[in-house]
Amino acid sequence: MDLIISLTVNGLATGMLIFLLAAGLTLIFGLMSVLNFAHGGLFIWGAYTGVWSFQMTGSFIVGIIVAIITGLLLGLVTERLIIRPVYGNHIQQILITLGFMLVLQEFIKVVFGPDQKAVFPPEILQGSFLVGDIVLIKYRLFIIAVGLLIFIVSSFILKRTRVGLIVRAGVMNKEMVQSLGINIKLVFMLVFMVGAGLAALSGIMHAVYSGVIYAEMGLEFSILAFIVVVIGGMGSFSGSLFAAILVGLAQAFMAYYVPALSLAVNMLLMTVVLIFRPQGLFGKE
């Protein structure tokens, strides 16, 4: 039982990290119909700038704030310069965002150097709690709490505020939203920036979780996020949370019980979902 609980906490923590990255991706796709392969680049920039400022100031909170601001600003630049000219053309989107992803990745090496960097959690989040015989690692619990907080706040905004209603309405019918006097391009830009901010937050959280950062981890991790978006249903925020937890748990349990299959399990999950429910678990036909 102790093992099951430990694996579950591991899986939930991984799931929440993937959710933070996938949440922005699914909103961007749902609202803007944009396939953003540069999302991993925003993630890695969040990781590096966040870790750098964390190490410079000694404050993890400052690190998180810097990561989010970096994500928001990069999101603004990416939407205005890279995405805006290719709205409505998926092939061009894939090519240009994938190219920009590589630019962001290589530029990390120019600014921060090509070597891997070690990262340690802040003192307050180091160590673990002992509940009975179960060891609960503090930082993993922190990730779960942050992920849940982001989900609750985002869900509240999407469901209870007019801005959120506009975003949801925009996912359904952009033309009608514009016809009601709402500047959908501005909404697009803000959603893109928020999505990028979430990716950057995921970056710094993941950096501390894995204990090491390197430029290529953005691309590796964003593939997981894409799998989650497909499983959850493109455009579905709740679907992303559910799928991220599913993927996180599957990975944690498989890594323990069938290590050989741990890397394949996500692809397997996605394949099964695509066969039986091509629109994703929470997606609409």
Partner: peptide, 24 residues
Amino acid sequence: LQTHQIANKGIGYVPEDQGVFGDL
């Protein structure tokens, strides 16, 4: 002008397909 600017001049639009947001 762009659509939202036209709408904000004081023109309301009811499209042929009604444009109701189904999930809201």
